[in-house]
Write a protein that binds this DNA or RNA. Structure first.
Lengths: 228, 228
DNA sequence: AGAATAGTGTCTTTAAGACAATATGGC
DNA sequence: GCCATATTGTCTTAAAGACACTATTCT
């Protein structure tokens, strides 16, 4: 029993959110009606490899084709699924919420975004299987990497302002970021390239930028604020 | 077909080395006689979970019970094993070479250490399956984490001098480290605790230290030398 | 005493934190 | 011109790099 599960993150209503699907009520299915991370069995006929499987499930749920996708780890033991020893390969994805077309699939009664609390990695509800553990690991990985990478940029649409990028960092980190230091950091690391257009904001318009590389994150030489 | 494979690192003859085992020659076995990372099928009767499986295999090969062990990732596709779609869960382990009792097992004709080149992640030989990819990923992970963690300390025996610790860093990083900055870094992060004994060196004896925490690595606030 | 390695001090450099000042477009 | 937000500048601070100096034990 080998599956792939996804922690799909986006910024919804100015906070970090993860996509959850509801387990089917069919008899024989474990955790009927519970919320869970999207995922499912590998289709050895269709999926060339694990990443292909993850991409397929992401596409089926969100319609998004090329998000930031990173392997998170694997969870396997004899307790996590009542049907016996099972293993899942977890991935986490970052995408812009405006690119998403939510789709309830055959195996998922409903789909929704669940906000991640600023203070904790806990979601309000009990998730199916060990998905709470997987989600906690995904949030932890994301929160760690935010400190020294450009990951939050993948939560934004293709074109964005530096203020929006800074806001994405603040949402993921759960704390304010100093504007001037932030801009030097982004600039000297060569994360973005300036576009010719600006975005109207009601006051002084903001310069638009886009990522130089939509595929790989940039690693900064230091973390944001050194852990004590 | 689900397996667990291990990249077991140690310092041997003053260079970073990984443990390889030779594949059996039995008919029906893929890659007969090739060198490979130690590993094998999960035993659902004996292994409570993936880590337990990794620990068991590590113990069987080296006799080491409690090394530093970290999940590396999983590799799965329909090409990596000629017998069909297969998945492996890779772990990497760090241990002191003086704690090791090498043991050729039932499923491994021979065992040996292979040095990792300073300049590349390549091992001289062709490894079985996709183990060259897995090893490359393990070396990359290790080389990345060395820059901001105390991982090299797990390559040393329980008691060590700061010079030995510095040498372990240099071996993994493949470049010299500045002594004074290194010591301030280790000291201010509270990585080690001073023992009362010293080690004779032929000249001024060196103070002995041990890790404050033999289980978890310490994360430094900055990398060693910022990537350009 | 001299050799050799252990351990410390000083100065420079890099990039972040704090905070203030300036710039610009809409109204 | 006024307001609000964008953008830039200045000063301070933390920790690494470079390199020199001191300390201690053995021969």
């Amino acid at each position: 029993m080998v599956t792939v599960d996804l922690a799909i993150f986006s910024v919804v209503d100015d906070s970090l959110a993860v996509l959850l699907v509801q387990r089917p009520d069919s008899p024989g299915e474990p955790y009927p009606g519970s919320w869970a991370l999207p995922g499912g069995f590998i289709d050895v006929a269709r999926d060339a490899d694990l990443v292909a499987c993850a991409r397929r499930k992401l596409r089926e749920k969100t319609g998004v084709v090329s998000p930031y996708l990173e392997q998170l780890g694997s969870w396997g033991n004899r307790r996590r699924d009542p049907r016996g020893w099972s293993v899942t390969h977890a991935y986490f994805a970052l995408l812009s919420s405006d690119a998403i077309q939510l789709q309830a699939g055959a195996n998922a009664a409903a789909v929704r975004w669940a906000a991640i609390g600023d203070d904790s990695t806990r979601i309000g509800e009990r998730l199916a299987f060990d998905h709470a553990d997987i989600l906690a690991a995904a949030v932890e990985r994301l929160r760690n990497k935010v400190e020294y990478t450009s990951l939050p940029a993948f939560l934004l649409p293709v074109e964005f302002t530096l203020t929006e990028l800074q806001r994405a960092y603040e949402i993921v980190m759960g704390r304010p970021v100093e504007k001037s230091a932030f801009r030097t950091r982004i600039d000297s690391a060569g994360v973005v390239e300036r576009l010719s257009r600006t975005r109207a904001t009601g006051s002084r318009p903001a310069q638009l930028y886009r990522l130089k590389d939509r595929t790989n994150p940039v690693y900064f030489p230091r973390t944001f604020s050194p852990r004590s």
